[in-house]
Design a protein around this nucleic acid. Structure first.
Length: 569
RNA sequence: CGGGGCGUAGCUCAGCCUGGUAGAGCGCACGGUUCGGGACCGUGAGGCCGGAGGUUCAAAUCCUCUCGCCCCGACCA
């Protein structure tokens, strides 16, 4: 492609609404253009990378035995009502009405539609297992779209759904898909990690996420370098913490004045104790009413763990009013001592052995010290509520967990029969008995993976594409288009490379060399072939890699061969 | 949705506090000089100052309401 004929406009300035590098670089490199928050046009250069990504995914899905189809983007409400997700999905679901006021939504995921398809065609265990996939735009009216393609409201996703006669068969497909995903991310030359994950609103029994490690990631993951255990912090477990220091005998329960100390650090400052000697009492609201959760003062609570322990559908931090009603004190002074036993309370297991600790006194400007279980507080419900963090002990071995940030690029789930039961998607076994199909589902963010690749592969001048995702493999630059010899040679080398099957972008624009070099660095095409008057005088052209920028002068007649060698590896 | 910030030329921003003829750089067009790391000189086009109300002799500027966008939190590929 000749640049002069292409649709590619780069910018020098970084757009004021782009925060993270991948977003900035995609905007500057003329790959995407924003239409509205979280809604983008893929411009020709960006679209080429997206298509590369889709090709890789398609190849691996096909190899794993999945069959491609294309489902509608617009779904009738009835299907979503069958699984009760029409309401459960809430405002994330982008809803519309047709001219007859019938309800529809833009599909955020396709369990309902695919299950509806399969239940009409599949009757027998002999037709199973099945694995169907598509690559399609998804629509989620995110509360907060951000970071360009990283979290968009309209985004490309590969989604696959498998159907089985029983859990063993699901296990096999799940394993095959896990392996296929690994190959996809390896093909993209991405540094990723596979972590245990929370199932979230999709539901199901087991799930794993594929995380691309990057500082700007929205997720936190912990991993154990010793045994390889890795999990999203939402899901992660840790070896139980050592009990907060319990020096000697039980102290007396004492109310102390702590004026204005509503935060952990203010309390520790005023009382001169470590945060690990505090037990904080968090008030949550659930559909069953308020719940108190107790965790060590220096640690955070994992809301997902609390919600799943309680079996709560809805879990939110209580507002000022509720806290005041439950504890009789303003926010910041809640504690378990002397509260009505009517209110459910759950303690994190790591404080079970604690003694002589500090808690809020349920009145303004006061705390209790010397608090002990049994004598001062009765607590019968204990579970793991801890938000695991770096430095915690690995739950599987003696190792210590490390904390990293990651971008979730893929997520695979064992769904079980949640959807097949709700939608009566059944098969007959060899005894003629009817069962709901066991299902799995497998998502992979196309645009997000491309963005993640940029997060991992860039420098101060621009993108450094890994070859498999590069919009073009080779950039041929005619340094000075006024020089006939330069142009003639550049034209010829461009033609030859194309004949050899390379994907070539040819910068034939009438621009100054500086502009061409800056643009070349910005758009990050892996191999660069520069034809300029200086080297040409010596019968040479310049070949270089974007990654290391080391320039090699090669004789004109060897140029094409040299470029092909670099592309080959 | 809660908290914070921003809407002025295609882009990045100044001007607003203290009301009085709308600015710069980049980009774009034309002419000239240049041509191996975002050149230089000259000329020019381009703006209902996000929108609606209000205050005022006078509003980009002050007030109210709206819409959009960005950042921080709970959700997700």
């Amino acid at each position: 492609m000749r640049w002069s004929q292409f649709y590619l406009y780069t910018t020098r300035e970084v757009p004021n609404d782009a925060e993270v590098v991948s977003h900035q670089l995609m905007m500057r490199a003329g790959m995407i253009r924003k239409a509205a928050a979280g809604i983008y046009t893929y411009l020709p250069l960006g679209w080429r990378s997206i298509m590369k990504m889709m090709d890789i995914v398609r190849r691996e899905m096909d190899a794993a035995g999945a069959v491609e189809l294309m489902m509608p983007a617009i779904h009738p409400a009835e299907l979503w009502q069958e699984t009760e997700r029409w309401d459960a999905f809430g405002d994330l679901l982008l809803k519309i009405k047709d001219r007859n006021q019938r309800d529809f939504c833009f599909g955020p995921t396709h369990e309902e539609v695919v299950t509806d398809v399969v239940r009409r065609d599949v009757r027998s265990y002999r037709q199973l297992p099945l694995n169907l996939y598509q690559i399609q735009n998804k629509f989620r009216d995110e509360i907060r779209p951000r970071f360009g393609l990283m979290r968009a409201r309209e985004f490309l996703m590969k989604d696959a759904y498998s159907f089985h006669a029983g859990a063993d068969s699901l296990g096999e497909t799940y394993e095959a898909m896990r392996a296929a995903y690994c190959r996809v991310f390896e093909d993209c030359r991405l540094e990723y990690s596979l972590v245990e994950a929370q199932s979230g609103t999709i539901g199901g029994s087991a799930s794993h996420e594929f995380m691309v490690l990057a500082e700007t990631g929205e997720d936190a993951v912990v991993s154990c370098p010793a045994c390889g255990y890795a999990a999203n912090v939402e899901k992660a477990e840790a070896r139980p913490l050592a009990a907060a220091a319990a020096a000697g005998d039980q102290e007396e329960l004492t109310e102390v004045s702590t004026p204005g100390a509503t935060t952990i650090s203010e309390v520790t400052d005023q009382l001169q104790v470590g945060a690990d000697r505090l037990v904080k009492t968090l008030v949550y609201e659930t559909e069953e009413g308020p719940v108190l959760a107790l965790v060590r003062g220096d640690r955070d609570l994992n809301e997902a763990k609390l919600a799943s322990y309680l079996g709560a559908q809805r879990l939110t931090m209580a507002g000022d009013e509720v806290v005041r009603r439950v504890t009789g004190a303003p926010v910041g002074f809640a504690g378990p001592v002397g509260l009505s036993p009517e209110i459910r309370r759950v303690g994190d297991q790591s404080i079970r052995q604690s003694s002589n600790f500090v808690v809020g006194a349920n009145k303004a400007d006061a705390h209790f010290t010397g608090v002990n279980w049994g004598r001062d507080v009765d607590l019968s419900e204990w579970t793991d509520l801890l938000l695991v963090t770096g430095g915690d002990g690995c739950p599987r071995c003696d190792g210590t967990l490390e904390l990293h940030r990651g971008i979730e690029v893929g997520h695979i789930f064992k769904l079980g029969t949640k959807y097949s039961e709700a939608m009566e998607c059944t098969y007959l076994d060899d005894q003629g008995k009817s069962h709901p199909m066991t299902m799995g589902c497998y998502g992979l963010g196309i645009g997000r993976t491309v963005a993640a690749a940029i997060e991992q592969n860039h420098d101060e001048d621009g993108i450094i594409w890994p070859l498999p995702l590069a919009p073009y493999e080779v950039l041929v630059i005619a340094l000075n288009t006024r020089d006939e010899q330069v142009v003639e040679l550049a034209d010829r080398l461009y033609d030859q490379l194309q004949e050899q099957g390379s994907e070539v972008l040819y910068d034939d624009r009438d621009e100054r060399p500086g502009v061409k070099f800056k643009d070349a660095d910005l758009i990050g095409i892996p191999v660069r072939l520069v034809i300029g008057a200086k080297s040409l005088a010596g019968g040479q052209v310049e070949v270089s890699l974007r990654r290391d920028r080391e320039k090699i002068l090669v004789p004109i007649e060897n140029a094409v061969e040299r470029v092909l060698e670099l592309l080959a590896g």
